[in-house]
């Protein structure tokens, strides 16, 4: 029994490390289209949370904030010096001018909402 519980605990820890850090989901990624991509801000996640774009393009992102809690009120693109307040009930458009190739995190102020923008 003792062994079993310890083993379960260890497995749980390995699982946490693997799931949250080592294996980053790419299945949900979406390419940013010419007309812009809509990102729904609700229930603690951006969906889609992973965006892909080509370098040298101006990206248009439409944020649709449905979560009224203040956590969701701002989106910050780290490393791009871009941030925008999101209003509920309307779409807020964020334009990124030719971000250089690289991976950027975009989060709410508290970093509870997390997304990735991969420019290649």
């Amino acid at each position: 029994m003792t062994l079993l519980i310890n083993l379960a605990g260890l497995l749980l820890m390995v699982g946490i490390v693997w799931w949250f850090w080592l294996s980053k989901s790419t299945t949900q990624s979406q390419n940013v289209s010419d007309q812009g991509t809509t990102i729904v801000v609700a229930d603690g996640v951006y969906s889609p949370a992973t965006l892909r774009a080509k370098a040298g393009e101006t990206l248009t992102l439409h944020f649709d904030r449905r979560d009224p809690s203040p956590c969701a009120e701002q989106v910050v693109f780290h490393g791009l010096d871009v941030s925008e307040f999101l209003e509920t009930g309307t779409i807020t458009t964020v334009t990124l001018n030719n971000p250089p190739a690289g991976e950027y995190r975009f989060t709410c102020q508290m970093q509870m909402y997390q997304g990735r923008l991969i420019v290649s």
């Binding site: 949250f20 980053k24 989901s25 229930d43 603690g44 969906s47 509870m112």
Partner: peptide
């Protein structure tokens, strides 16, 4: 749950 599916964890 939604965050978990995205390999994220937050305050929720």
């Amino acid at each position: 749950w939604k965050a978990f599916r995205n390999h994220n964890a937050n305050m929720d």
